[in-house]
């Protein structure tokens, strides 16, 4: 999967925290939310495995932007939020 800049994406609405010990770099407040790919930042070993010293597959990392109004009921129109997310948390929307 290669997500081009401008692609609309949705973050998985997944909560591994409820299933046991884990290390997740996808903040809770973007899960299930719709954003847009800004750029591909490269590929890095998956921190979810590195954190437990397990063999870590390389994952593409994207800069994804979300409107503040998509994230918060009191979000200000026009302001937005940029966050680094790994490919395995994203689906084209």
């Amino acid at each position: 999967m290669d997500l081009a800049p401008g692609t609309a994406v949705r973050v998985h609405d997944d909560w591994p925290e409820s299933r046991g010990p884990c290390h997740i770099r996808t903040p809770h407040y973007v899960r299930g939310r719709r954003g847009r790919i800004v750029r591909r930042l490269g590929a890095f070993p998956n921190p979810e495995d590195l954190a437990f010293a397990r063999p870590a597959a390389t994952r593409a990392l994207y800069h994804v932007v979300f409107n503040e109004t998509e994230l918060w009921p009191d979000g200000r129109a026009g302001d937005d939020l940029l966050v680094e997310l790994y490919e395995h948390w994203l689906d084209p929307a």
């Binding site: 909560w15 925290e17 409820s18 997740i24 903040p27 809770h28 407040y29 899960r31 994230l71 918060w72």
Partner: peptide, 12 residues
């Protein structure tokens, strides 16, 4: 309230 981890503080 979602089941976020306690270190995951954005916006709380």
């Amino acid at each position: 309230q979602p089941p976020r981890a306690h270190h995951d503080m954005g916006g709380i």
